[in-house]
Amino acid sequence: MIDSIDIKVLRAVYLLMTCKSVKKTAQLLDVTPGAVSYLLNKARKETGSVLFLRTKAGMIPNDIANELGQRYLSLSRHLSDSHQTDSSSDRKISICTDSIVEFLISKKVSERKNYPRQISFLPSEMEDENRLLGLHCKKVDIDAGTRLPPDSDIVQSLLFTGGMKILMAKDNPLANDEFTLKQWTTCRHVHWSRKINYLYDDKKQARRFNDLMDKRKVRVVSGDSLNMVMACAFSDHIILMPESLSRLIVKRLPMIEHSPPPELNMHVSYYLHYNHNAANDEQLQDIMRTLRNIFKPDE
C-alpha cells in the first residue's frame, strides 16, 4: 500500500514529521495549509491510519507515518542520484548563510569570469530545525553557519574556527587603546540576534561570559550581520564578531579589530552543511572550495 503513494504525498508527510506544524509544512512546500491537509487526507485514505496525533508539542507521527517518511527519504535519494547528469549545470546553486558571508562569496565569485552556475542566496534561517528542513527538501544546497545537530543525510564540513574580536570604526575614540572590561560595560553595542554556539573550556567561564554579555549597553539588535557591521563602521558602536570574519572585514571597511579581555575569549566554529548527494556535484564542490579559500588563514 505504501509503495503506491505519490511522492508529493510522501514529502508532505515527511516534512510534517520533521517540523510538526501544518503551517510550516505549507511554507516549505509553498502551498496553502489546506493543500497540506488535502495531501494528508490522501495518505490517510491509502493507509487507513490517522498518521498524526495533535498535541501541545505539535503533530506527532505514528509508526505508519514514520514508515512513509522513510519511504520518502529512500525515493528522494534514489531520484537525486539518478539525476546527476550534465543538465544539472543549468540549475542554480542555493546558499543559506549570514549576509556578511554572502558579501564575501559574491565578491570572490565576481572575480571569476563566466561562472557556470547562478548562485541564489536565501534568507538566513534562525532556527536549526528550519535550516535542516531546507537541506532535506533540497530548497538549500549549501548551509554555511554554526554547526547543526547531527543528521545521517547531511554532511558537515568545518569552514573555520577561532576566537572572537571586537570590531569598531577606525575613528572610534577607543580605536588606539587597549580594550578593557570597563570599556566593554560603558560602550554602546550592536547585538547579533543570531544564535551562536560558543565553545568554552568550563562552565565557570561560560557563566562569566554570559554575565558580561548581559551587562552590555545594547543600542541596536539585528539578525543581519552586514548591516550591523556597517552600523559600527560609521558610528561609535562596537560589535563582537568571530575573528575569521573580523579579519576579512577590516580589509574592506574603515574598521579595526581589538582582542577582547580574557573573560570574553570564547571560540566559535562555522560549518558547511550539504546533502550527501552533493558529493557528486563538481560545481557545488567548487563553490565550497571557494568558500574554504575565503576563510583560509593568511600565510
Rank of each mutant, 00 (worst) to 15 (best):
P173S: 08
G162H: 04
I294W: 07
L53G: 00
E257H: 03
L40M: 13
T55P: 03
N172D: 00
V250E: 08
K56M: 06
E46R: 09
G134L: 03
R91K: 14
D298L: 02
N265W: 04
I249Q: 03
H273G: 07
M59L: 13
Y38P: 01
D151T: 06
E299L: 04
D211K: 08
Y115K: 01
S21E: 07
R252S: 11
R71T: 11
E243G: 03
S152Y: 14
D151G: 06
F160N: 05
I7L: 13
L28E: 06
Y270E: 04
G145H: 04
H78V: 06
T146S: 14
I64W: 02
I256R: 01
M241N: 02
N293V: 07
V50S: 13
W184S: 01
V218G: 10
N66I: 08
T146I: 14
P150S: 14
T97R: 09
I249E: 01
K195C: 05
E102D: 13
T25Q: 05
N227C: 03
P260W: 04
W192F: 02
K138Q: 10
H267Y: 08
R247W: 00
M213P: 02
V218W: 13
M168S: 08
R44S: 06
L73A: 11
D90N: 14
I60D: 07
Y274K: 04
Y274C: 10
R91Q: 12
S152V: 12
K42M: 01
L68Q: 04
L181F: 05
V221D: 10
V250H: 02
R289N: 14
L248W: 06
L212A: 02
D6M: 04
M213T: 02
D143C: 05
D202M: 03
K108Q: 14
G58W: 07
C187Q: 08
A169L: 05
T146V: 15
W184V: 04
N277H: 10
Y270V: 00
S94K: 14
I249V: 12
E127A: 11
V155D: 09
